[in-house]
Design a protein around this nucleic acid. Structure first.
Lengths: 195, 195
DNA sequence: GTCTATATCCAGATAGAC
DNA sequence: GTCTATCTGGATATAGAC
């Protein structure tokens, strides 16, 4: 499984991105000024604009990078498992792990309203990783693992609980690491759609 | 069931709030200037600051009003139904109705990151309506309607799918009104936690 | 490629007449 | 209570040396 970590080498674009995701997720995009990024990263204004064009460019680069990594991770899951049940469980397990290991990555992917500052961007649930998740469920219905029902309802039922748990964990409402809830949550999720 | 509609009388604070929720949910809080509110509402800068103190005050008034209405609606549900099953279903039905009838209200309640501009505010899932939802599930576990399990996992399992459907509907991914999915979604949700 | 210094603009907020 | 006119700070972005 490829790490989703932002590589922490000393090169400048990566320093900028690391600082940006930290500030964007903790204070919010609009409450973070370029000067804040300059101060926290130690990189100059000029370099930032040289590499990313403008502030929105930083957000865009970050988003594209993280979505791509997520796509690749889901592709791996599809290769390593061949039932809908195993794939969906692996997706949830991965999402839980990322939430624990890199909460800012998960926050930026799921709970930042990108459309507000990245104009013309589709909402996150239209993105490829989300489509992959729905596709896994739809294939499970074709194969008979999942009972016949509306595909959107099925996808929401399988993944909805997990996404709620992630949200609550990131908001500090759950004390235990998500991985400790995995088995119980998965068994509930699967009961909701299995034959 | 009390309407959650913002009363559209001609008094000035209400005009301001109506315009504000529209702009905040469509463009975002930070991309909405007070001048935008002035232009769209026809109310002057001076009046806005007179009534709400500052821009954040508008957001705060809106939030408190909507949370209170939601609390009251949930109180009604608790009075009108006496099983966890009936209560949880009624909550989902209500949320679906509000999403269809007043999408901006639902967007502002659920998908706006209030912490970013209302400093010191707890995340929405710590708010009373969310606690009421979790409480309904916990009571169902005490009474034996819901099988024994972690209460947070149970709540996430029951309401997670519905919240996903709301999110997808507000993002334009679902073509049908949510009310048409209610029966199928509820049957999946309840299967995940029932005995 | 990286930096410092600076220009420009527009946001939030206020003053004070009516 | 409502309005218009105005102030001020800080934000994004650029210029140009090194």
């Amino acid at each position: 499984m490829p790490s989703l970590k932002i590589k922490s080498s000393r090169n400048i674009p990566e320093k900028i991105l690391k600082t940006a995701i930290h500030l964007f997720t903790n204070r919010g995009y609009f409450s973070t000024s370029v000067s804040d990024i300059v101060r926290e990263s130690g990189v100059s204004t000029g370099s930032i604009y040289h590499h990313f064009g403008d502030k929105e460019g930083i957000a865009r680069a970050l988003f594209e990078m993280l979505v791509l990594r997520m796509e690749n991770a889901f592709d791996d899951i599809e290769r390593q498992h061949d039932t809908a049940q195993a794939r969906c469980r692996a997706v949830i397990k991965l999402l839980f792990q990322i939430t624990e290991e890199e909460p800012e990555v998960m926050t930026y992917m799921l709970f930042v309203k990108h459309e507000e500052f990245m104009l013309g961007t589709a909402p996150i649930c239209s993105s490829k990783p989300f489509r992959q998740m729905r596709e896994m469920v739809a294939e499970g219905m074709d194969s008979g693992e999942v009972r016949p029902m509306d595909p959107m309802v099925a996808a929401a039922s399988i993944f909805g609980g997990a996404l709620r748990m992630i949200s609550m964990r990131l908001d500090g409402i759950l004390q235990q690491p998500l991985t400790e809830y995995l088995d119980e949550l998965w068994s509930s999720a699967w009961r909701s759609v299995c034959q």
